[in-house]
Computed example of a mutant assay.
Amino acid sequence: MTTTIHSLPRIMVEPVVRAALLEDVGRSGDITSQAVVPAGTQAHLQLVARESGVLAGIEVAKLAFMLMDENCSFDVLCEDGTDLQAGTVIADIQGDARAMLTAERTALNFLGHLSGIASATRPIARAIAPYGTKVSCTRKTLPGMRMLQKYAVRVGGGSNHRFGLDDAVLIKDNHVAIAGGVRAALTRAKENVGHLVKVELEVDTLEQLDEALQCGVDVVLLDNMPIPMLKEAVQRIGGRAICEASGGITPESTIAVAQTGVNQIAMGWLTHSVRVLDIGLDSV
């Protein structure tokens, strides 16, 4: 199956890809390809899946090749969101051999990592969908990669939590401790942010939850709560706020968490430790 996903604009992606290529070519360029491959040699290559999974990042990989050889031919055969099988040909590429070999590792790094995120997200998103629950990523992302990693989560059928510190208020335990308590933290937040900004509070006890609900919190993050406590928390919330579960949740436990009635399940490992999908570049 193929999911309709709008690719990220090039203006957002290009700085990340350029930085990765510059890191790789260093001060002298690809000295291996320059030494081994005669100048002007043309190459015909294909991106091929080595295992089953979900494709994400094909336009990022394409950009890596195009930045090295703007005249190369890059024929996309599978769009982001495609369910891949081992042996699926993802793209057909023709261009300057030296340039193609220089771009290879950067393109595969992006493609394998982003596809790994989408591949891990999709089965979870599908498993919890019948309960009306969505899986989301967090800010636990690799430096410089947040935009792309969060995109890959969407490709896999998940949703995004806040992108940074500037687009939503999330009051955590240290904020509460320094502010002087739940009520003080929520009151100050509501007084100091715009009316369009959501205010979320992390709670790890039912007593904190009750106080937050009394203050009119928009979203509650139910942190590291066992299943019975999650059920009780959802009942107490009663639809008055969006409820989100986080902390120690594994793919195996997501259904049990979703069955408690939470709206969202936040999983940091989707972006900070997921396994890459094995994708290779083969000479034709």
Rank of each mutant, 00 (worst) to 15 (best):
A256L: 00
E252V: 07
L222H: 10
E232K: 15
L209F: 03
L230P: 05
T250A: 03
I255H: 02
E232Q: 14
K231I: 10
L230K: 08
L213H: 01
V220T: 13
R240D: 02
P228E: 03
P251L: 04
I249A: 00
L201Q: 07
Q214R: 11
P251I: 07
I242L: 15
Q208F: 08
G239H: 05
P228K: 10
D210W: 00
A256N: 01
P228D: 00
D218W: 01
V220H: 12
V219G: 03
D218Y: 05
T254Q: 03
R236L: 09
G238D: 14
P226M: 12
T205Y: 12
M225A: 12
E244R: 10
I249F: 00
G248V: 11
A241W: 03
T205N: 13
Q208T: 02
P226K: 13
A245K: 08
L201H: 10
L222R: 11
D204W: 10
I255V: 15
G248T: 12
E252I: 03
I242M: 14
E207V: 08
T205M: 08
L230C: 07
V219L: 06
L213V: 05
V220I: 14
L221C: 10
I255D: 02
C243L: 13
G239S: 06
V217R: 11
C243W: 12
V234P: 09
I242S: 14
C215F: 05
T205P: 07
V219E: 06
A241Q: 06
L213F: 01
E211M: 14
A245V: 07
R236P: 04
L206Q: 09
R236F: 06
L206F: 12
A233K: 10
V203Q: 04
L221F: 03
A256P: 00
K231R: 15
M229K: 12
D204P: 11
A212G: 11
A245D: 04
C215L: 11
C243A: 13
I237R: 06
N224V: 00
L213P: 07
I227Y: 02
T205C: 08
I255Y: 05
Q208H: 12
I255A: 02
I242A: 14
M229D: 07
S253N: 06
G239V: 04
C215S: 15
A245H: 04
S246I: 03
A233C: 07
A241M: 08
G248E: 12
A245I: 08
Q214G: 10
S253P: 06
